[in-house]
Amino acid sequence: MQEVQDNNSSPTPGLRERKRAETHARIQSEGIRLFVDKGFEATTLDEVAAAADVSRRTLLNYFGSKEEIVFSAKAEIPQLIADAVAARPADEPLLDMVENALLDLAQRHQTEQARAITVLIGATPSLQAGDQAKYERIERLLAQTLAAKKGLPEDDVSCRIVAGAAVSILKLSTAEWLKHPGRSPEAFGREAFAALRRIAG
């Protein structure tokens, strides 16, 4: 009975859904590849469409702009962070909860493509505003998730402060990773959280 219920709750995607997902992934992959190889500004939507073997009209049904293609590759990050925090033990101190969640994610999602996209964004002024918006979403969702985990009001000031500090450390860790590719972002993250504790203590 349980197996039947589980199957009903997670139906296998139909052919149409699978084809849409495959097309979305192909456009995203070819777009990122071209942006990294040629430069964001130098690459046109027509070139991305040709590389993905779709028409420009089809591409625009999936992505409204080149910016959307880039940020689609990072769209899940705020929720991934929130889910990682939600999975931590409820009795962990707020700062430990965030640090452990972020370090775990850094170890599992540190890829060459992630670094290439981060380099691309850093080198492209027209993408930087969208990247800042991503960090703002992370901070809001992180504060809400911490508050829910601790049974506190959604606007609890401690949760908001910890979320803001965590996002600042996330930005610094990313910048350090770009400057020193051989050094893992979690190594700098550990140092940054330790420094924050020393300052706060």
Rank of each mutant, 00 (worst) to 15 (best):
G130P: 14
Q132A: 15
Q132G: 14
K134C: 12
K134V: 15
Y135R: 10
Y135W: 13
R137M: 13
R137Y: 03
I138V: 15
E139Y: 02
E139S: 09
R140V: 10
R140L: 13
L141K: 13
L142D: 00
L142M: 10
A143F: 08
A143Y: 05
A143V: 12
T145A: 09
T145G: 10
T145L: 10
L146K: 03
L146F: 13
A147E: 09
K149P: 04
K149A: 14
G151I: 13
G151W: 14
P153E: 04
D155P: 07
D156G: 07
D156L: 06
D156K: 03
D156P: 05
V157Y: 02
V157C: 02
V157G: 01
V157I: 10
S158W: 04
S158F: 05
S158M: 08
C159P: 08
C159K: 02
C159R: 02
I161A: 08
I161G: 01
I161D: 03
V162K: 00
A163I: 01
A165H: 06
A165Q: 12
A166E: 01
A166C: 07
S168Y: 02
S168M: 08
L170E: 06
L170W: 07
L170F: 09
K171C: 05
K171Y: 03
E176S: 11
W177A: 09
W177T: 02
L178E: 09
L178P: 06
K179R: 12
K179W: 05
K179C: 07
